[in-house]
Design a protein around this nucleic acid. Structure first.
Lengths: 128, 128
DNA sequence: TTAAAACTACGAAGAATTTCGTAAATTAAT
DNA sequence: ATTAATTTACGAAATTCTTCGTAGTTTTAA
């Protein structure tokens, strides 16, 4: 298997989000994005990226004097991992509870609900 | 409103889980439960509980020389809070993606799917 | 060609979290 | 009654995470 356990810290997760949304990016770009939410120093972002490189959470290539960073963990894998943790951690393993709470608290559009309903019907058709 | 923001640390969350599952418990009991997963010293557990008391995450009463601790945050509130975090953190705020991934990866029973489907239909009836 | 600006590396301070040792008090056992 | 065991409080070490300053290099601008 490709990677072990994905356990990004808060700061690392913020950076991964940027990379997932924007694709491969320079430190400058990433830092600019992060600063939309909260002031954070350039070298802070750089440092975290260097740590993430060591951990294998991101990869980087040189582009002139710059580094271009990319997420090295799939968004899906991270989603799955953190979802499992939440599910077992606070929802006692009940996907139903989690799903219902997610649907209830956010208010998804009719379209989204429709898609989810169809998906459920697919699943129901499938197996026990 | 009763409480502000619930932001339990990892260790605190482990303890809350025990309290949610077992109800009000002594330090000894809690520590025993935690030790089923991983070795952890008695005074460590005690210390975390003391910190949690200060933060208002748990409450306690005296029972002879012992303290009996109870969760002071509702499981629901913690669920909501952590769900939001996951949603915004890794699912880009899309409840649909989260729900579908949760349904897809776990495999809920037909009964559960049925309940969820009904719930969705309720929601669809409700609002925009 | 010199000065300013932008970049990486690195160390280390600061903050938050986790861990446990020790002391003091209370209870239980011998 | 002594001793051993159990408990709470507390301090502080150890660990992890976040933040940034400084130094050195490379590029850009004047």
């Amino acid at each position: 298997m490709p990677s072990n356990k994905i356990k990004p810290t808060e700061a690392e997760l913020n950076i991964l989000q940027v990379l997932w949304n924007m694709g491969p990016s320079s430190v400058r770009t990433i830092n600019n994005e992060l600063n939309k939410a909260r002031e954070i120093g350039y070298t802070t972002t750089l440092k975290i990226l260097q740590i993430m490189t060591e951990k294998g959470l991101v990869s980087r290539i040189k582009d002139g004097r710059n580094h271009i960073y990319s997420a090295a963990v799939e968004q899906n894998a991270a989603q799955q991992q953190l979802l499992d943790k939440l599910l077992n951690g606070v929802f006692g393993g009940s996907a139903k509870k989690l799903v219902m709470q997610a649907l209830g608290s956010k208010n998804p559009s009719k379209n989204e609900l429709e898609e989810i309903r169809k998906y459920i019907e697919e699943l129901e058709g499938g197996e026990s």
